[in-house]
Design a protein around this nucleic acid. Structure first.
Length: 803
DNA sequence: AGCACGCCGACT
DNA sequence: GTCGGCGTGCTC
């Protein structure tokens, strides 16, 4: 008898294992590991994944698989294995790992409903019958909201009402109605001849098919021939035409024509960098390359040509790009080279669109996927290369469970496929560069920009000096004069306002009160569209106050990312300048990001003003000036990577200037010009920065010299949170090797979320083979309390941010 | 995660 | 005696 091992969709410690189910005979030859099923689990139905098939089971009372949800496995053997690896590495539940690899559309939706048992209607009093008025089922959610929950529950016990469980897919495949002729050209002509003379419209429809015998979408047909549905219907009824439902993809890029491009001739440097990659592709050998190339050195062309080789070899490619630079511009470059062999995956797509892109990959209709972090799980079976552009970007680390880093997943998959990985960056993560130096990764260097263009000249302006000289504006003299100069020449400027986060908070200018969330220790975020304040952590929402709740002053206003204020000041000092502002406020609508960039590219503005989101990917020939208004705002964050992040951002944004014929200039304004990350980004010298930063990391026992694991404990009771963290810290100190450094307990940077106090313990280690086992023991020990949700313990292996 | 089961105190 | 509170343990 066929038995399936199933991982069920119940993310909890106690159910984090396989359960056995028997397979009904009719499905015996269909089922395969990696398929989704619906299975009975206790009293309800849940979704699950078949992880293995076997012939027998030790389980006595085995139940049957209720339904098979897929005709083809959604997870192949490799991905199932990768799921186990993810579970192990990130210490998450198996089901969480499996779901993370699939588009959200494939996740189940559960519904619990009540219905009247057959023939028991008389047993119900009028109030209950009234609830069922006009419907045979009511949802459990409504029951809980009604005042009759107890009463209804009693009827369930008596058997008058029945509880039913439904498992549904989040989403259906999208279909369109398609019309096609059932006769050939001659047949249609003959039939047109015998149509009654008053059937003019039917005649026109037939005429369409005589000229275009192919099938056509009903909607298009109606538009083209300008007839109503009734006309087509008549012809279908007569058996001349046929209608059918056809599955279609929601193609976010439909109606867009991409001009094909040919590979460019590579520079000597580029060719030298590409050669070892090509060798690895053709030898089917695994290797990780760190492509370290200055901004504008033509990394993308190397990616494109490597992918081209992979496709020619009949294999597939994954191209990861950070979410914020996954702009239509980027996508265009890949679509222009590889046409419709490209699928695109990013968070801007709807659940349905993502699902459709995923299906193109699953059905082997595309060869390349360009996407953000989660595209690393694209279900390709013959991977020939994985490329991660801007590999230092922190968005490659998922900040929810499973807390994986796409770079590590990429390497794991590439090992399985015996194929190369390219990590590309002008400012590699310190960890990556260190590995390249140790020859764990192979270093490929591009030190020159293409088109012979020079790296821009960088001016670092000390804003303290400006203040001393009586300049209180946010623009230094230098920046102002260069701005005016560009304006006169008709060249373009990018202005970066380097502010932390992307949100705007509210502060009273009289008493300095910042409106905080009542449940969390974090400021509320202003939302313009409904003039309200929201907490991004717990969802708390309140109206924007008219006066300060503390001192009553009406000088209360929001401090946005500040771009608005800069815009106002620009309007004062350079009234003739046309400014495009890009920040959360102006880019929240779908497609607005692209629209603004297009407008800038087409020269409808002189200045592009924005936050971090403008630092990447812009490649416009007319940009000759980049200004950073305040370079040091994120330097003083309590994060050991803040210097690295500052250096990376400044270098990236500087790289926007002078990429083509016109030379570029950069002005960096700062209050700490002596800080090495600012000074060295001015010199664009990553190598020196690397040495400096490595020295500091070694001194303070941080990566790449040490690995990190962060344990976060939260509890409603502050003392309890501290006590548990304390106990964990003690336990780990005792059970890990003396080389491990265990710090804590300390309050989290966000010390309270949703009225739960948060404490943490940080482990720095070099080699601790027992670490995961010990952490599992810790989780095990607090199992009971975490199950009751009194206590929460989360573990982040290799955290990117210390929250 | 749900849900049933079971044991306890408070009530018709 | 019975209802409903919540701690405990199970789900193939």
């Amino acid at each position: 008898m066929g038995i399936a091992s199933v991982v069920v969709d119940v993310p909890a410690k106690q159910t984090d294992r396989e359960f056995d189910y028997s397979i009904p005979g009719k499905w015996e030859h269909i089922v395969q590991p990696g398929m989704r099923v619906i299975v009975p689990f206790g009293p309800r139905m849940v979704q699950g994944f078949i992880t293995a098939l076997k012939n027998d089971s030790n389980v006595k009372k085995i139940r049957e698989v209720k339904e098979i949800l897929d005709l083809e496995p959604v997870l192949n053997e490799e991905l199932l294995k990768l799921g186990s690896w993810l579970t192990e590495e990130t210490m998450c539940f198996r089901i969480t790992a499996l779901q993370a690899m699939l588009p959200a559309a494939l996740k189940a939706k559960y519904e619990k409903v009540l219905r009247i048992s057959t023939g028991r209607e008389e047993h119900l009093e009028a109030t209950v019958q009234a609830l069922f008025k006009n419907k045979d089922m009511i949802s459990w959610k409504d029951v809980l909201e009604s005042d009759h929950a107890a009463l209804l529950q009693k009827h369930v016990r008596k058997g008058n009402l029945e509880v039913m469980y439904f498992v549904k897919d989040k989403l259906k495949k999208k279909t369109v109605r398609v019309i096609q002729p059932l006769l050939n050209k001659e047949g249609l002509e003959d039939y047109a001849g015998i149509l009654p003379p008053n059937a003019r419209k039917q005649y026109e429809v037939l005429h369409h098919f005589i000229n275009h015998p192919d099938k056509i979408q009903l909607r298009e047909l109606l538009e083209d021939v300008r007839v109503s549905n009734a006309v087509v219907k008549a012809l279908i009824d007569k058996g001349i035409l046929a209608e059918k439902e056809e599955e279609i993809y929601r193609d976010p890029y439909e109606n867009r024509v991409f001009k094909q491009t040919e590979p460019f001739i590579l520079t000597q440097e580029q060719a030298d960098a590409l050669r070892p990659v090509k060798k690895s592709i053709h030898d089917n050998s695994h290797a990780v390359f760190l492509l370290y190339g200055v901004t504008g050195s033509g990394k993308t062309e190397i990616y494109l040509q490597a992918i081209d080789d992979v496709i020619k070899k009949g294999e597939e490619a994954i191209m990861l790009v950070p979410e914020i630079s996954l702009t239509p511009q980027t996508v265009k470059r890949f679509k222009e080279r590889f046409g419709n062999l490209v699928a695109v995956m990013h968070s801007g797509l709807s659940i349905g669109e993502k699902y459709d892109e995923w299906r193109k990959i699953h059905r082997k209709e595309v060869k390349v996927v360009v996407g953000a972090r989660s595209a690393i799980f694209a279900p390709f079976e013959n991977l020939g290369i994985i490329i991660i552009d801007e590999e230092h970007e922190s968005s490659y680390k998922q900040e929810e469970t499973p807390r994986y880093h796409a770079r590590e997943v990429a390497i794991e998959r590439a090992k399985h496929h015996n194929c190369p990985v390219i990590l590309g960056s002008a400012t590699p993560a310190l960890e990556s560069f260190a590995r390249a130096k140790k020859n764990v990764y192979k270093l490929l260097t591009l030190s020159k920009r293409m088109n012979e263009s020079k790296l821009p000249r960088v001016d670092i302006v000390d804003m303290r000096e400006e203040l001393r000289n009586g300049n209180r504006s946010m623009f230094s003299k230098t920046l102002f004069s260069k701005l005016t100069d560009r304006l006169e020449k008709g060249e373009q400027t990018v202005l970066l306002l380097n502010k932390r986060g992307h949100s705007s908070f509210v502060m009273c200018r009289s008493c300095g009160l910042v409106t905080n969330c009542p449940n969390c220790d974090i400021s509320l975020t202003y939302h313009r569209y409904n003039d309200s304040l929201k907490c991004h952590y717990c969802g708390h929402e309140e109206r924007m106050p008219q006066a300060c709740p503390e001192c009553g002053s009406d000088h209360i206003r929001f401090f946005g990312t500040g771009t608005q204020k800069v815009e106002e000041e620009l309007a004062k000092i350079l009234p003739e300048a046309r400014v495009i502002r890009m920040d959360v406020d102006t880019t929240s609508k779908k497609g607005s990001h692209e629209r603004l960039l297009n407008a800038f590219q087409e020269g409808h503005a002189d200045i592009l003003l924005g936050t971090q989101m403008i630092a990447k990917g812009l490649d416009f020939p007319n940009i000759t000036l980049v200004g950073v208004l305040s370079a040091d705002t994120m330097l003083h964050l309590p994060d050991f990577r803040s210097s690295e992040k500052t250096f990376q951002l400044l270098t990236q944004v500087s790289g926007r200037a002078g990429r083509h014929e016109l030379p570029g200039e950069v002005v960096i304004q700062t209050y700490t010009p002596e800080h090495y990350s600012i000074e060295l980004s001015g010199l664009q010298d990553f190598d020196v920065f690397y040495e400096r930063e490595m020295y500091i990391r070694r001194q303070s026992h941080y990566p790449p010299y040490y690995y990190l694991a962060l344990i976060n404990v939260s509890h409603e009771d502050l003392m309890k949170a501290v006590a548990v963290t304390e106990k964990i810290t003690k336990y780990l100190t005792a059970s890990l090797s003396p080389e491990a450094i265990i710090l804590g307990p300390v309050a989290s940077p966000i010390s309270r979320i949703n009225n739960r106090y948060r404490y943490q313990c940080l482990i720095k280690y070099k080699r601790e083979p027992e670490l995961k086992k010990q952490l599992r023991t810790v989780l095990e020990h607090y199992q009971q309390e975490t199950a009751q949700n009194l206590l929460q313990i989360s573990i982040d292996m290799n955290p990117q941010i210390m929250m």
